[in-house]
Amino acid sequence: MTESTTDRAQGQRARGSRGPSLGDVAAHAGVSTQTVSRVANGLTNVEATTRARVLASMQALGYRPNRAARALRSGRFRNLGVVMFTLSSYGNMRTLDAIAGSAATAGYSITVVPVERPTQQDVSVAFTRLLEQAVDGIIIVIEAHIVDRADVELPAGLSVVVIDSTERPDYPQVDTDQAQGARIATEHLLALGHETVWHISGPDDSYSAARREQAWRETLEAAGAPVPEVLHGDWSTSAGYEHGRRIASRPEITAVFAANDQMALGVLRALHEAGRRVPEDVSVVGFDDMAESDSFWPPLTTVHQEFEATGRRAVELLIAEIEGRPEPVTSTVLPTRLVVRGSTAAPPAR
């Protein structure tokens, strides 16, 4: 009786010999070894039904592509490194999720190295760790100004894409239009009739926070409106709450633009506790459009960012570099849009 491909592969494993080969998978799936190779290498020029049949055969036989051997042949590991600061932030996690999904679709895995402090030394250590992990390229998601500095050396000879910074002309960058988002938020409140808009900023070392603060200030100046002092926050709900308590005690404040939704949530709580109604007494706008913002009370008017598009675009640029199809080194700036909900209205009558 003729031994089946499955039985032969199982027998080889039981005898301690080599595992199933490309040829075994090809015979089991009824395709060529070249087709199995294309599927194993994550290439896209295979019909969906054929790819599914090959993957099913790989699973049935227990075939595992030899990543190390493949890398030696192709010079690629099909692994992307991600250097990221503040894994707990909403925007970073949404961006990372998009990076991981886009990489998987393209046949790449990712290795994430978090950076505890956005310092030159910590960033350099992260690069070293990723090089030890055999990556083909790196996406940097560190919004702090450390990456913008000319003395921060990014990995030489390795493809790099930077997210959340547009001050490195030597590397492709992807970012949301932070200035546009802050401008439309401020203009919205002024158009409702508020004399001015108070601002709770993000951390001092944050690139995004600096761009939002600058655009808020320039928008007020262009409108001839007073520019209040900046209330410095740290992206946290607690920071928004503490500043919200101060805002609640000052009846002349009728409009607040918080640099992210979490701080805006803290403001809403503080105003509610103090008996200041939103939006009847104070209007509040956030930034990010996090998934829960429409469930705040009242639902939060906020600036929507395209986190998913940012992650996808960064992966596209990086893989194009890796695979020898580089686009011109330029910045990709994705637009924002204002989502108007129940937390903004005209100011109270004087």
Score class of each variant (00 low, 15 high):
residue 1 M to F: 08
residue 1 M to I: 09
residue 25 V to C: 03
residue 33 T to G: 09
residue 36 V to Q: 04
residue 37 S to F: 01
residue 37 S to Y: 08
residue 38 R to L: 04
residue 42 G to A: 06
residue 43 L to C: 04
residue 44 T to R: 15
residue 44 T to A: 15
residue 45 N to Q: 14
residue 49 T to H: 12
residue 65 P to Y: 11
residue 74 S to W: 06
residue 85 F to I: 04
residue 94 R to N: 15
residue 95 T to A: 11
residue 97 D to T: 14
residue 99 I to N: 03
residue 105 T to S: 14
residue 106 A to F: 00
residue 107 G to V: 05
residue 107 G to L: 11
residue 119 T to C: 04
residue 131 L to D: 11
residue 132 E to W: 00
residue 144 A to N: 05
residue 146 I to W: 02
residue 148 D to Q: 09
residue 155 P to N: 05
residue 156 A to L: 09
residue 158 L to E: 04
residue 159 S to T: 03
residue 163 I to C: 15
residue 168 R to F: 07
residue 170 D to Q: 07
residue 170 D to N: 06
residue 174 V to N: 09
residue 175 D to P: 01
residue 178 Q to W: 05
residue 179 A to F: 06
residue 180 Q to P: 10
residue 180 Q to C: 08
residue 186 T to Y: 00
residue 187 E to M: 12
residue 190 L to A: 08
residue 190 L to G: 07
residue 191 A to E: 13
residue 197 V to A: 11
residue 199 H to F: 04
residue 204 D to T: 14
residue 207 Y to M: 13
residue 211 R to K: 15
residue 213 E to I: 08
residue 219 T to K: 03
residue 221 E to V: 13
residue 221 E to H: 11
residue 222 A to Q: 14
residue 224 G to Y: 09
residue 227 V to E: 02
residue 239 A to T: 02
residue 251 P to C: 01
residue 258 A to L: 01
residue 269 R to F: 12
residue 272 H to S: 14
residue 274 A to Q: 12
residue 281 D to M: 08
residue 281 D to Q: 11
residue 286 G to C: 07
residue 289 D to K: 02
residue 292 E to S: 14
residue 293 S to Q: 10
residue 293 S to C: 11
residue 302 T to E: 02
residue 307 F to S: 11
residue 312 R to V: 15
residue 318 L to G: 11
residue 337 R to C: 10
residue 339 V to E: 07
residue 342 G to V: 11
residue 343 S to A: 10
residue 346 A to N: 07
residue 348 P to M: 08
